[in-house]
Design a protein around this nucleic acid. Structure first.
Lengths: 229, 229
DNA sequence: TCAAAAGTGTTCTTATTACACCCATGG
DNA sequence: CCATGGGTGTAATAAGAACACTTTTGA
């Protein structure tokens, strides 16, 4: 085998940390591996990238095959390429994370989707390959991102209460926030549309429902505003 | 060719945006391509990754072959993998940036180093491949990073004046900073060691020389401090 | 003595923090 | 009428922004 050919004896994959929020905890969707290597371990959903497929497209495909969801928030984080990260050959992987509304997720018929399950981020054990490292990197990135841009809304249903919003941030950042200060700040940004609706069927004073105002956000950004929490 | 073989008909490379600061402007080191594709264009230094080489190692190698420098600040940014980004085949590239002290750079004997030249970031023209996109992404990342961590010092000589420090930040962020506020803030962090030395041979009042106090920084971080500018 | 950059504080404005009670609803 | 979470304001502190003159040196 010539030297130049040996360069092409390698493959690349994408792996996707799919985050969801159940109203309480930050979760990720993991696949139970039914085959070697790492048979029996939990792993991030991922796949080899097709020869004629863009990286982002591959990550979207993995997500859609597993969840049936399209047009989801997806961000590339970085490449992981340690020589021995894959026991069967030289495979570098490009890590993504995505944010989905956990209630939109329904187990799809795809065979590997049958073995998928949500895990609390705080209770993830030892994963296949270098997936713990990938998860940690993606989580760190999400924590940064969620303070710098209004991406957290991707985890919530279209209508949400301020408490839900706050709990989502607390779950991601793993820190408690002050209720009054949080509300003051988030409302002062004028990014929440008051729907003049309230919760129903709760055994306490019902909370007002809000919606993220994407249009306002885009206008404010165009005017020089930058989100910060 | 079987399907599985086709996955391995691909290669990956690293490309490195090497930043330097000449006391005035932010610069990058580009290579003038002597061969197709993109013959005659300027390009980011890069190379295919050896089959048994980690990604970070490959980026370090590219940097060392070009500049002779080792133990340099290097950060992976992301992977670029559009299907047609390389005219000769499927090659995804992992982008890095590095920060070097421009005065340490001496043209090395390596053949491709002969065709390297510093370019002002603001005057970079159309580059080979998708290298303009890579450069922009790396520059954006550097702007973020330099506010969140004391990496800018990597661009300065070991002894520097406060004005030099400020000009470095201004060059990276492309914005003017207030002299008094800048000094107040940076000195209040206790990350600068006053060397009790002054500039020599300048035709004006000589400035005091400082050094970045890595040891203090690490201790402060351990105690929960986080750099912010 | 001139030119050139170094060095230095205060005031004002804005953002952040800390903190406790009453309200509306369902059971 | 009780339990549960919803909703609200103010005062103190800290951080950021704006701003102009004197000092030191070499030529």
């Amino acid at each position: 085998m010539s030297e130049i050919e040996s360069f092409f004896k390698s493959a690349f994959s994408v792996d996707n940390v799919i985050f969801g929020f159940d109203g309480n905890e930050l979760k990720i969707l993991l696949i139970h591996r039914g085959a070697a290597p790492f048979k029996g371990k939990w792993a991030l959903p991922g796949d080899l990238v097709y020869p004629n497929e863009d990286l982002d497209t591959a990550a979207e495909r993995v997500l859609e095959q597993l969840t049936g969801l399209r047009d989801v928030y997806l961000e590339q984080v970085k490449a992981f390429g340690a020589v021995n990260r894959h026991p069967l050959g030289r495979v570098i992987t490009i890590a993504y994370y995505s944010l989905i509304k956990i209630s939109d997720y329904i187990v799809t018929p795809a065979s590997f989707a049958q073995s998928a399950r949500w895990h609390s981020v705080s209770e993830v054990g030892e994963l296949a390959f270098d997936h713990n490292e990938i998860l940690n990197t993606c989580l760190k990135r999400l924590k940064l991102k969620v303070r710098m841009a209004p991406v957290g809304f991707e985890l919530l249903p279209p209508k949400f209460t301020l408490t839900e919003l706050q709990q989502m941030y607390e779950a991601i950042l793993s820190e408690k926030l002050d209720k009054r200060n949080f509300r003051k700040k988030i409302l002062s940004m004028n990014l929440l549309l008051d729907l003049n609706e309230i919760q129903e069927g709760v055994a306490h004073r019902p909370a007002k429902l809000y919606q993220f105002d994407q249009q306002n956000y885009e206008q404010f950004v165009a005017e020089g505003f930058s989100f910060g929490l």
